[in-house]
Amino acid sequence: MSWFQRVEKGILTPTTEKKDAPDGLWYRSPSGKIIHTRELKNNCYVVPDDGYHVRIGSKEYFEILFDNNEFTELDPNMSSNDPLGFVDTKPYPERITASQKKTGLKDAIRTAYGKLDGHNIVIGCMDFEFIGGSMGSVVGEKIARAVDYALKTQTPLMIISKSGGARMMESGYSLMQMAKTSAKLALLHEAGIPYISLMTDPTTGGVTASFAMLGDFNLAEPGALIGFAGPRVIRETIGKDLPEDFQTAEFLLEHGFIDFIVDRRELKKKISLLLKMLKH
């Protein structure tokens, strides 16, 4: 009976390798539209039939935004410490290691500089796959240093947010990353260097309540969930059902907190135009 038993135990394929999906693999959007994955990639991971924006990470955003996918990553090796010795159902360092193995990432954000349509730009992009895109010391410090780089080189900054909020396992440290990123953005603000914030699905909690909402330009992807408190918490607090479009990008646009919603297929063109207009 050994012919169906797995010979090797604990096979863990990093996500980066998983993405080299063989031809013939199909993607199905929540509304049921089906598309070939190669096609999906060529369409900036937007399903053409219904415009559904598939959740993607820093690798894909960098591919979409940086010219020829050429960029220099800042602080690529920074990773989380365990300052509290935090243990819930398992120790925090184990979660980190497991996440790093699973995703091939070091933490929940990557920062890099390069050119976008010929314009110099610094881009920070969060990865939701890494512990829910939660903000701990690494996310805070990498953003702080990306701002330092933008200040030093007088380069516009863009941050793509995708996060469940603060990283509880870093407790007080994670809270202070909200302060730290905002402190750096105060300096960028005073230096008159443009800061573009793109909020993608989902952007919530401490990330929304700090750098994500502080853009000179606050942009969002269509349909993205953006908010401070999670919808479940709000429903439980007020004891009422929430409007259907509650906390979507469209809802925020309507209430005046977003400059415009941008389709991912237009993203590079729009950013390029914006940067051009600020220069001339």
Binding site: S182, T208, A209, S210, F211, A212, M213, L214, G227, F228, A229, G230, V233, I234, T237, I238, K240, L242, F246, Q247, H255, G256, F257
Partner: peptide, 16 residues
Amino acid sequence: PGLEAEERGQAEAIAK
């Protein structure tokens, strides 16, 4: 964490 709080930008107010 309320409905109106979100409508009126709880996150933006704190961030600012």
